[in-house]
């Protein structure tokens, strides 16, 4: 197992924390947009995928 060593600057936020935050926000945003937003064009384009992935579609 290769360890990853991040240095945390004094008083700063570690790059790990920023990466976790960015991944979390981006991930939630993409899933909400692709899976849950009900705008007609988005709904129609994503229709089959929403059904197949267990999202509430209609």
């Amino acid at each position: 197992m290769i360890a990853s060593r991040q240095t945390i600057p004094a008083g700063g936020i570690s790059s790990r924390a920023v990466a976790v935050f960015l991944c979390g926000v981006l991930g939630l945003g993409i899933i909400t947009l692709a899976g849950n937003v009900q705008a007609a064009s988005l709904h129609n384009a994503a229709h089959d995928v929403r059904h197949a992935n267990g999202f509430a579609c209609h």
């Binding site: 360890a3 990853s4 060593r5 976790v20 991944c23 991930g27 939630l28 899933i31 384009a45």
Partner: peptide, 27 residues
Amino acid sequence: LFSMLIYTGYGLLLTAAVMLARGEEGW
């Protein structure tokens, strides 16, 4: 396209969760 988008979202969330769980330990 939308399947790739949704799993990209899942991949980002899973990566965030693994990073939180592992901390300074290896991947």
